[in-house]
Amino acid sequence: MEHLELFFKSIFIDNMVFATFLGMCSYLAVSKKVTTAVGLGAAVIFVLAVTVPLNWLLDQYILQPGALVWLGPEYAEYDLSFLSFILFIATIATMVQLVEIIVEKFSPSLYNSLGIFLPLIAVNCAILGGSLFMQSREIASLGLATTYGIGSGIGWFLAILAIAAIREKIRYSSIPAPLRGLGITFIVTGLMAIGFMSFGGMLTGGEEEAKEAPKTEVVKVIKKEDAKATEVKETPTELSPSKDLANNTKEIQE
């Protein structure tokens, strides 16, 4: 049940493109044709599905404060979390290289159609972002991490598929010249993001996990919308920092 919830949450509510803007550069650059968009989206799903669980294992057994206890009790105070960035990016670069080799061996046609994009996925913010959000949201188990990875990948795939389809059609509309190409893509993506906000109410309704989300939203709303200087600036729970600035399920109070 938890898996299903996390799966749908990461596709629709925390959509990588529309809620947290990860992977925008390749999203904008590759979305001119649906066929390339589909190829890149599939590659992103695959890479995310592989790297997020791997990085979860790294985080669990090496990086977290106190994670090194399996080496011996004297290692309990070691906190290697400052190495997260470098270790995550190293696993991602390695996995992408591996994926490239495997794809080249087993499906040369897919390899050719992906072209330069496969190696570029290593520096796609979506991949590193997936791992970093997995870490900051403290996802609890390997299975959940895999679900999160696959779900986020599918969300990204949906987003780039949609914008590619729209851009293909929009070439034949009469858009003001300065907006053509990049400008209208930004505005259309903004409108799609507003549309995706409607999924915000999808999973609330008495579930354990969902209860945390409205609570941090209210805290944020109080922080942002009231200029009350006397209101104590509560440091939000671990869940919200990364959601804080890009959360689109926040309720607008009057």
């Binding site: 003001p176 300065p178 930004f186 689109n248 926040k250």
Partner: peptide, 18 residues
């Protein structure tokens, strides 16, 4: 303050710039 408006603001900046 929500996510989509950032996209639209950047779209407008691009519009003005071009």
């Amino acid at each position: 303050l929500l996510a989509p408006m950032a996209l639209i603001v950047v779209g407008i900046i691009i519009w003005i710039q071009r």
